[in-house]
């Protein structure tokens, strides 16, 4: 699945990315199991869009995001980043070249209580990437830039000399966003940016991310578990299950006509804030498997209500199930064209 949309080159192209963690035991840390956290995923992200990686805990969505920026070293695969007509494989870079590339890709983390150093003022937190990369001189110039960044995320620049503890969760996430945008990146990897926030504040941050995207022509890789949030934020969505992408398509196609039984299960299980909603989660069969003991064939088959013998024996390839002219709709299921799945839009 290398060509999702033809002609325009993507901003980021991930090819067969893998990350294997070893499970060790005892004093000698003997390896007794391997976890394929990310098991050969490929996707592209285009300039100005938001691609969401969704899935439940342990599906590898966070690891995938971190492998792209090399916060975690990928085991195999390529991560091509296109910048100023150049193509670089981030997975093969190191030293100054990696540091250079990382200025274009920044991260926003889940927990703004953990991701901001409590001993640094906002000026230091937001200014640090600017100083390290010699974008500005310390002093007035730095203060001016940080003030502009604070204004960008709708915080009062006068707060610049305060410490993070003086701020609420939502405000801290704004600070984290300001830090991520300090170097004018082209790609922002947002890993569950609102799941630690109160409901009334979530919408503020989600709207802010959208607003900044339009203003700065940003591209987002949005990692999340909450399908409702993803529905509001993304242009395209990749659903992951045990390290693999099992469905990847536009938001409207995914929510309108899901093709993978796991996506159907997620849609039907997500609670909807309407007591009149008639969608019913199907009976859950099977347990969520241990990632170290990946089921044979299609990894979802022990929990799939449609599973056939073939699903146990053969791993389904990721193929395009969209009709001619429609945007690509990638799905990895043997039965995709024989099922009519519910979308939960009742």
């Amino acid at each position: 699945m290398s060509e999702v949309q033809t002609s325009v080159p993507p901003l980021l192209e991930v090819v067969n990315l893998r990350k294997t963690f070893a499970r060790t035991r005892g004093l000698l840390r003997r390896v007794h199991g391997l976890v394929q956290a990310v098991d050969g995923i490929s996707f592209q992200i285009f300039q100005g869009e938001t691609l969401a990686l969704v899935g439940e805990s342990g599906c590898g969505k966070t690891t995938a995001g971190r492998c792209i920026i090399r916060a975690i070293e990928p085991t195999a695969g390529e991560v091509f980043f296109y910048q100023d007509g150049m193509k670089q494989d981030l997975a093969a870079l190191d030293g100054p070249a990696l540091r250079q590339a990382r200025q274009h890709i920044r991260m926003v983390f889940q927990d703004p209580f953990a991701s901001l150093n409590p001993r640094m003022t906002l000026l230091e937190i937001i200014g640090e990437p600017l100083l390290i990369n010699r974008r500005v001189r310390p002093g007035a110039e730095l203060q001016e830039r940080v003030a502009a960044l604070l204004k960008l995320v709708h915080l009062d620049p006068r707060y610049m000399n305060r410490y993070p503890h003086a701020f609420s969760g939502g405000q801290r996430q704004r600070i984290a966003i300001a830090r991520a945008l300090a170097l004018d990146p082209s790609l922002v990897i947002a890993d569950e940016p609102v799941s630690a926030l109160d409901v009334s504040v979530q919408a503020q941050i989600l709207n802010l991310l959208k607003e900044l995207q339009q203003e700065k022509d940003l591209t987002y890789l949005f990692v999340a578990h909450n399908l409702a949030v993803v529905r509001y934020q993304s242009d395209r969505i990749a659903v992951m299950y045990l390290g693999k992408i099992i469905e990847l398509t536009t938001r409207d196609q995914l929510f309108g006509r899901p093709l993978h039984p796991y996506t159907e299960l997620l849609l039907l299980s997500s609670p909807n804030p309407d007591p009149r909603s008639k969608k019913k989660p199907p009976d859950l069969i099977g347990e969520i498997p241990d990632p170290a003991r990946r089921p044979s064939g299609c990894a979802f088959h022990p929990r799939c209500r449609y599973a056939q013998p073939v699903c146990q024996n053969q791993e389904p390839p990721l193929i395009n199930g969209a009709p001619e002219a429609a945007p690509a709709h990638w799905v990895a299921c043997h039965l995709w064209d024989r099922l009519s799945l519910e979308n939960g839009q009742l």
Binding site: V199, S200, V201, Q202, L206, N207, A228, R231, P273, N343
Partner: peptide, 24 residues
């Protein structure tokens, strides 16, 4: 009213989220 308007939903029309301003 504001809470209900600010929560993303998995189905129904995709209206813009209206956050509650300020913080608790």
């Amino acid at each position: 009213q504001a809470l209900i308007r600010s929560v993303p939903k998995t189905s129904g029309p995709l209206e813009k989220l209206i956050p509650i301003e300020g913080t608790v």
